[in-house]
Nucleic acid binder design. Structure first.
Lengths: 202, 202
DNA sequence: GTCAAGCTTGACGGTGGTGTCAAACATGAC
DNA sequence: GTCATGTTTGACACCACCGTCAAGCTTGAC
């Protein structure tokens, strides 16, 4: 094990994630990452080849954590609460920090400098998995019977909505507004527990 | 009228809009705009002060056009058709060009280099106006009676959804998928014309 | 202690970005 | 035709970025 890495890789990747998350892929320079981690630029190039490869390494960790947290939120027993907890988690995640950091996935998806196929594939992978999580949660008997549209469509609408909420967060910077919008969508998707005509009081 | 502008301002602003739209605010350099318009960098600085001010000038034109087109789509007599036409318009707009250009508003909202207060205000202004257009369209008797949630909430959900669709377009590059997602949301928001329990066939 | 492998370090060359400025120029007013 | 005004033009100063590389260093293996 001669010539071994001198820096703490875990710490470095965590710092890199923070910078990518805050500034976005395209606006982050290798020097930014070097400064944030205390590792010289040259070492980063040596260890990770280039910015894109380093980003993909960081994004993998991020995606894993994100999916685990999302799954936990969706595990609520009643479907209303599960969806509310799901949105709550995403909204809390994006409104954390000063200034708020937003959503790494969405920032990367929109970033014209992050147009490589590897990055696109990583984004698709995460969104596909999120959609699958939501779909599974909506496929239980209780949820199924209350959905206004089929579970697969509802899952896709919900995931798409989380992306829209991210954008609205950037523009209005008002977490309460985001939660209200999410709640309105949930109201529209789920009929009341008491079967029959839906209320207009939502 | 001595010392008058030598270049065609309309043409220049149109070219600038195309470049901003395609590359995004942050990734567009003044040289990009100069090359695209055939006007030297110095002249652009002289005429518009700096990149941000030029962008705001461009964005104003863009917003005006966008609102006019959106209003026209929403003018369909039946609310289902109106909402479908509204999404159709936004989807067609973002999937135009090779590569597809996406959405200028969303690109700007997410761009960490476009974080000035003037830009943020311009984005809010456009989104507020879009929401108002949709809200008005949903406040007619016919629409009101068929909405699963109140018109104001529905309008906000719909506008937020257009932003989400923009993000999904970037990741999946599949216009049909976007239209299907929009249709699913419309199904969830509107009860069938025949009053009573909603169908699960959507 | 010696050694080789691989990491670290600082510098280099090239590119590209911003905003400014003085000189040259074009044009309508007179 | 002269002139004042605002535009155009190319150069300038400055800063940031990328990716590379040779020299120095650290470390475990032997």
């Amino acid at each position: 094990m001669v010539g071994q890495r001198q820096f703490d890789e875990r710490r470095t990747l965590d710092r890199a994630r923070e910078v990518f998350w805050l500034k976005g892929y395209g606006a982050t320079s290798m020097q930014d990452l070097a400064s944030a981690s205390g590792v010289l630029r040259g070492s980063l190039y040596n260890a990770y080849r280039d910015k894109e490869t380093l980003f993909l390494r960081v994004f993998d960790d991020y995606a894993e954590q994100f999916l685990a947290d999302a799954a936990q939120a969706l595990a609520q027993p009643v479907v209303d609460q599960a969806l509310r907890a799901f949105f709550d988690f995403t909204i809390t995640s994006m409104t954390t920090g000063v200034p708020t950091r937003g959503c790494l996935t969405t920032k990367t998806a929109i970033d014209t400098k992050a147009d490589g196929e590897r990055i696109r594939a990583a984004l698709r992978d995460l969104l596909d998995k999120m959609e699958r999580l939501v779909h599974e949660r909506l496929s239980t008997g209780e949820a199924r019977s209350r959905l206004a549209i089929p579970p697969a469509e509802a899952a896709r609408v919900l995931i798409t909505m989380t992306r829209g909420i991210v954008v609205m967060e950037r523009v209005y910077q008002d977490p309460e507004r985001l939660r209200a919008t999410a709640a309105a969508l949930i109201d529209a998707l789920l009929t009341p527990v008491d079967p029959g005509r839906r209320s207009q009081t939502g």
